[in-house]
Design a protein around this nucleic acid. Structure first.
Length: 969
RNA sequence: ACGACCGUAGCUCAGUUGGUUAGAGCACUACCUUGACAUGGUAGGGGUCGGUGGUUCGAAUCCACUCGGUCGUACCA
């Protein structure tokens, strides 16, 4: 074995082997294991965006999913980790558009829809594999042969089926509504994709002249409305006042002459107008504001759309009545000076013209939050368009109940509130998008505008008995990407076909995802799945039983990782390492905002002056697991990664030690040899059982941080620090019995072997690599026997199960005593600055019979671990040498001064010890002196405290005696 | 404005239903190349658990208020 662990050498070798041998497939589909396949366990991957590459958040979630999958696979479950990618409508379309523009200076319109979609597929074939390769590097045990893509034929058919069925059931409808419109991408987006940003703007107060000579109560011939978007006045169809407002209530039913355009619009009474707020008068623009839209509907106001789809002022407005039908109630001519003006330029022009007319009453600075498209980063415009909607309220009902009654559980639980709050106020879901890349809406229109829904044109004609001469055209729009990913859990398993997999693995077991997509994805999967999937009794099936919600991975300063901040870390760079030059290129090359380049470069240089060292996949995974306390964001810490890389090396070297000592030696692998277990053997075996219990519990409770901690603690602080050291004196002792040495070798091998299995779900590679060498010494045959098809991998071994009968309480107590004595001697050595090379004579006094027998049975261990030259027990009455003293319970441990201990140093050390005890005694005495405590605290607690006080007082007394004696010398 | 979460050692984080002297890793100090490992060993230093008040015999833990931070939702004529 190499002296240090070299992850690069082992990782890919094992991954390829696992994949080739089909170890990731469900046991039920492997002829060798089909009969013994246990209960199903299934995780659906949140499909990564096909345009993307894996970031630290993926690495984190994938580590958790893989750990769960491997853990359950080793527990004998029939496991499936279903993999796939999402077509990511807008994102992918934008990537390919940009590429097209860069390469041939063409737009997608130059190319045409079909040719453009071909381009996307080409691009997907050539670059869509990035993620899957990265997942292989992370060791993810996903079932590759069944990988799905949301635009695959089978999945596509499922999406169409879902749409058609929902439409037939009246749960999908088409309507003219206000939507969030992205003028740059020219599509509707959902309000979840809108990001509200605070900004400083103005509030313009505008005079609206009253028509027909009407006057306000105080004699004015105008009303004042306030607005942050003055250009929308071109679309005003009313002014609202509160019907209770004494200032204006008499004006209700009268009219305003809209400035600039001389449109005669009614004054209406509506509660939307708040008497306390502003002037009490509100301009109503139903086609360009969500609140006004509702007011308009209530008051039967017309809708006037003044904007084109790209956010320019139209020359001719679109006028509709309150039902959305084309109307001639108003003149559709808009002032020509604004025609074709971009909306923000129009704002300026309108304000200037109003001012010129003397109608600008006031302008005030105003803080407001402005909606931006999260992809396009332009201001979103409420826009009146025809769109398809899902009746979300109906679908949400059972989905809410499933969480209420515990059919679906969130971990941590508090996310259920977030889910409820959204689901209970859910609005109908706009599912059409004006894009080319996606699932095209399976709806056709005849020339009268009648809609027919079906799988394809023929199917539609047949279904509706349409003559072949009737011309049909398919809807141009595609479905929201989340519509298809809402079908993910059952669509990937073959639905609408009822496949074996669907029957076996649905509902799935656990969903691992970020809190940021609970609304986007989790809630929608709940709605769709429960609508389409029913069990044999017709009861809706949930998509998954548990939702494990992860936090975000942030940088070390708690900042979100983003390209524009230049603080993004690539998980593969943690694994393989990267030079500073390459990292700089990665962070600053090909930037959308070149002006940030210098800042990011400097920051990177400062943070990683040497680049990043290679740490290996196992260290990365262990770090992520160790930081995964539930539901909390993680501030990434390179130092922890380094610490856990060292941990990998520690395991490696422990294995090296074990192999060095068992190779070519008898270790009772097949139990054909007699062996005897030492106290140390029994102790480490006991500790192993406890660790197994703890780690299983932690996995079952999704506490990967605690599982990692328990593993780390056992391997480093028990197995390496103590057990390996305890094994040395036995193996090195020429007088030790053969049986005892065999027992030690056997324990070295078997405990390590079990520990590797314990660690495997988190650290798959290093455990497999070592396991292959160690397992034969633990009685496991690992050679591939092609004839009977036997193949061995730690992946397919059983997860360790604790055996309470192997816990030897006495051995544990004995070794803990040994540890205490060894630490006592080491403490003296350390505090007295005695060279570790120097073997010390040690005296014991106040020796109980139990101490006596322990000294006899374990003296050799103490000598070896504390570097002690001789052990001498003093009898009662024997004169104690002048020495440095430590206490282990009643037992006094002494290292004589002669030769190596400075008297003053020892006196000072005793002072320190006594001061510590004094503090303790004071605290305990105070507590026990409190009558309330003694009277009310449980008896065992009081007794415990009393014992502690007595022990501390006794220890103090003896240290003081010691101090006195020393002082008198 | 409302809600959720967070605030524990220099840094990143644990701390189970209230009950040893509040833990870990990294960093720090001293000593050490000892035959698994210097990506290491041994010993040590470091925290009034954001603040105030309360409940309790006892509070990092429960309650109220408060300060700071993150996120979400709402409002924004």
């Amino acid at each position: 074995m190499e002296k240090t662990f070299q992850p690069r050498d082992v990782e890919q070798r094992w991954y390829q082997l696992w994949e080739q041998r089909g170890y990731f497939a469900p046991a039920s589909e492997n002829p060798k294991t089909a009969n013994s396949a246990g209960d199903p366990f299934c995780i659906m991957i949140p499909p990564p965006n096909v345009t993307g590459s894996l970031h630290m958040g993926h690495a984190f979630q994938h580590t958790i999913m893989d750990a769960l999958t491997r853990y359950q696979r080793m527990n004998g479950k029939n496991t499936l980790w279903q993999v796939g990618t999402d077509h990511a409508g807008i994102a992918t379309q934008m990537v390919v558009e940009r590429k097209l523009a860069a390469e041939s200076n063409q737009s997608r319109h130059d190319l045409g829809r079909d040719a453009f979609i071909d381009k996307i597929w080409e691009w997907k074939e050539s670059s869509g594999g990035t993620i899957t390769q990265q997942m292989r590097r992370l060791g993810n045990s996903v079932d590759w042969p069944s990988e799905r893509f949301t635009m695959d034929d089978g999945f596509y058919a499922g999406v169409q089926q879902a749409f058609i069925q929902l439409h037939e059931q009246g749960l999908i409808y088409r309507g003219k509504r206000l939507v969030n419109w992205d003028p740059k991408l020219q599509t509707a987006i959902s309000d979840l994709e809108v990001e509200n940003k605070d900004s400083k703007g103005s509030m313009w107060h505008i005079r609206y002249p009253l028509a027909d000579g009407a006057k306000t109560a105080d004699g004015k011939d105008y009303l004042i409305v306030a607005t942050t978007r003055p250009e929308t006045l071109l679309g005003d169809t009313g002014v609202a006042v509160n019907a209770k407002d004494p200032r204006y209530k008499d004006l209700i039913g009268k009219f305003i002459t809209l400035p600039l355009i001389n449109r005669r619009i009614p004054i209406i009474g509506d509660d939307h107008a708040d008497m306390e707020k502003g002037t009490g008068c509100v301009k109503i623009t139903p086609a360009h504001d969500f609140n006004d839209y509702e007011v308009g509907k209530r008051n039967k106001l017309s809708l006037i759309n003044i904007l084109s789809r790209d956010g320019m002022i139209r020359s001719i407005a679109e006028v509709f009545d309150c039902e959305g039908n084309v109307s001639t109630d108003y003149d559709n001519q808009l002032p020509e000076q604004y025609a074709g003006l971009e909306r923000f330029a129009a704002r300026k022009a309108v304000v200037a013209d109003i001012d010129a007319l003397g109608l600008l009453d006031d302008v005030k600075a105003h803080d407001l939050s402005v909606p931006y498209g999260d992809r396009s980063n332009v201001v979103i415009e409420p826009m009146l368009t025809d769109q398809w909607y899902v009746d979300a309220k109906t679908l949400a009902k059972p989905a809410i109940e499933a969480v209420e009654d515990g059919s679906v559980k969130f971990v941590p639980k508090q996310y259920e509130n977030m889910y409820f709050s959204w689901m209970r106020e859910i609005q109908d879901w706009c599912i059409s998008r004006q894009l080319w890349w996606g699932h095209r809406i399976p709806a056709w229109y005849d020339e009268e505008g009648n809609v027919y829904v079906g799988f394809d044109e023929n199917n539609v004609r047949e279904k509706h008995s349409l003559a072949s001469e009737i011309k049909l055209t398919q809807d141009d729009d595609v479905l929201d990407t989340w519509f298809s990913s809402a079908l993910w859990t059952f669509g990937t398993l073959g639905w609408p076909e009822i496949t074996e997999r669907l029957k076996t693995f649905h509902p799935t077991s656990v969903l691992v995802t970020g809190f940021d997509i609970i609304f986007f994805w989790v809630a929608r999967m709940m709605m769709m799945t429960m609508h389409f999937m029913k069990d044999e009794n017709g009861k809706p099936q949930v998509p998954f039983e548990t939702v494990y919600v992860t936090g975000l991975i942030r940088d070390e300063a708690g900042q979100k990782m983003s390209k524009s901040k230049g603080n993004v870390l690539d998980p593969l760079d943690m694994i393989d390492g990267i030079s500073l030059e390459a990292l700089l290129e990665k962070r600053t090359g090909n930037m959308m905002q070149p002006h940030l380049q210098e800042k990011i470069g400097k920051r990177t240089q400062k943070e990683f002056p040497e680049g990043i060292a290679a740490h290996g996949t196992d260290a990365l995974r262990f770090t992520l697991a160790a930081l995964a306390s539930t539901g909390r964001d993680i501030n990434w810490d390179m130092n922890r990664l380094e610490g856990y890389r060292n941990f990998c090396n520690k395991i490696w070297n422990a294995a090296r030690y074990v192999l060095m000592n068992i190779e070519g030696q008898e270790c009772a692998a097949d139990n054909s040899q007699n062996y005897q277990l030492s106290l140390a053997d029994k102790w480490i075996i006991s500790q192993l059982q406890k660790t197994e219990t703890a780690i299983r519990k932690h996995f079952d409770e999704y506490r990967f941080d605690l599982a990692s901690q328990a593993l780390y603690d056992f391997i480093w602080n028990e197995y390496c620090d103590w057990y390996l050291e305890l094994s040395k004196p036995i193996l090195a002792d020429p007088n030790a019995s053969t049986e005892l040495q065999i027992g030690t070798r056997r324990t070295l091998a078997r405990v390590l072997e079990a520990t590797l299995r314990l660690a495997h779900p988190i650290m798959p590679f290093i455990t497999e690599e070592i396991w292959q060498s160690i397992a034969p010494y633990a009685g496991i045959n690992v050679s591939s026997d092609k004839d009977n098809g036997e193949e061995h991998s730690i992946m397919l071994q059983a997860y360790p199960t604790p055996d309470a009968s192997k816990i030897d309480i006495e051995a544990v107590a004995d070794i803990e005593w040994v540890q205490a004595v060894v630490i006592a001697v080491r403490n003296i050595r350390g505090e007295m600055n005695i060279s570790p090379a120097l073997a010390l004579p040690v005296y014991f006094s106040n020796v109980s019979s139990q101490d006596q027998s322990r000294i006899e049975s374990c003296g050799q261990l103490i000598q070896a671990l504390a570097k002690v030259e001789s052990l001498t027990c003093l009898k009662v009455g024997d004169e104690k040498p002048a020495s440095a003293t430590q206490l282990v319970g009643e037992l006094e441990i002494m290292v004589p001064l002669a030769g190596f201990i400075d008297k003053d140093a020892e006196l000072a050390r005793l002072d320190k010890e006594i001061a510590k005890l004094d503090k303790e005694i004071g605290r305990l005495a105070g507590k026990l002196g409190n009558s309330g405590f003694v009277a009310k605290a449980p008896a065992d607690v009081v007794a415990k405290e009393q014992q502690k006080l007595a022990d501390a007082e006794d220890a103090k007394r003896r240290l003081q005696t010691q101090q006195q004696q020393l002082d008198e010398l």
